Simulated scan of single mutants.
Amino acid sequence: MVRQHRNPWAAETERGHSAGEAMVFEIRQLRYAVAAGECGSFSKAAGKLNVKQSTLSRRIMLLEQDIGLTIFERSTRGAAPTREGSAFLAVARQIVEEAEGLRSNAQAISRGEAGTLVIGFSTSLSAGNLRTALLRFRQCYPDVEIRGVEAGWDSLARGLAARTIDVAIVPGELNGPTFAKLHLWPERLLVALPQSHHAAQLDVLFWTDLRDSIFVLPTLDPGPDAAELIRARLQGCGVIPSIVMQEITRENILNLVAVGDFVTIVSETASGTQHPGVVLREVRDSAGLAHVDFWAWWHKRNDNAALERFLRLVKDRHEPVPVRS
């Protein structure tokens, strides 16, 4: 007579579970069973896990009853997995390891050491303090995924309000009663000139040297703010500037400077990219070098721990590039 071996995952369990009925057990029970299998003894496993042997033994017995399978053969020499128990423990070990990893990851996210940080900006990342800040944050928190959103200020503000963007780094003000802000750093404003422009040959450039120039700026932010700054500086000298707003990106405006008869204004982050035929010059006024202040903006109720880490890093560790006078 051939003996039929019962499938350990059969429809009927020793406690009468029917096919399709869920088996309920705890990760802790699996951890106890895995430890017992590795130690070969309930007493050694209990010592390893710092629990009472009676507690561990009872939990494993309840687990065996729950799944309808004898995992261990008990003897005075210890506990050895049965054939079916060894197969079960292999799967249980994977579950325990995945649960441990899940818990560790959740704890890291709660501490801001993992997860995702969405950063909005409207300026170049080729150089400057923003790029430096992102590199430092990446080095300190490599398990945090950084996602960038480049957009106009209105779009960034909407993203902050909806909390689809964690923090926006912009050289100016964002409107929103629920926003908080942190001053980050000043960056110099540079004039981009074609090499043929007379002011391109000057070592020291003042706003009055640009009185006859045509300024071309993007309609998207920070173009309008740059236009207001140009008007304020030149009108203070008795000059009404010629400003043209165009619906193209600042990168394309920079590319066109070399072949056009106009100039534009950029922050020093643009100095990280080469534009053939274009000369970048610092511009001075009575207060020294022209500059713009960058701010971090975020929703007051944003509870992303990675955001708190980022703000702390740029506030405490970042050394701003000074504005030379």
Rank of each mutant, 00 (worst) to 15 (best):
T178D: 13
D209M: 09
L190D: 09
Q201N: 07
F179K: 05
L205P: 12
W185Q: 06
F206K: 04
A192V: 09
D209E: 02
W207F: 10
K181Q: 13
E187P: 05
E187F: 05
L205T: 07
F206C: 00
F179I: 03
D209A: 00
H197C: 15
L202V: 08
S196C: 13
L184S: 15
D203Q: 11
R188L: 13
L193I: 11
A180F: 02
L205S: 12
Q195D: 11
K181F: 06
D203Y: 00
F206I: 00
D209R: 03
A199T: 05
P186N: 05
Q195G: 15
L184H: 10
H198L: 05
L202N: 15
L202I: 09
L189I: 09
W185F: 15
P186H: 10
A199W: 01
L184R: 15
A199Q: 00
H197F: 10
L202T: 04
A200C: 14
L182E: 05
H198N: 01
F206T: 03
D203E: 02
L184G: 10
A192G: 03
Q201I: 07
K181D: 08
V191Y: 06
L189P: 01
L189H: 12
A200P: 08
H198A: 12
A180K: 07
V204P: 00
L193S: 12
H197K: 07
L193G: 06
H198I: 00
Q195K: 12
H197W: 02
Q201D: 08
F179N: 04
A180E: 14
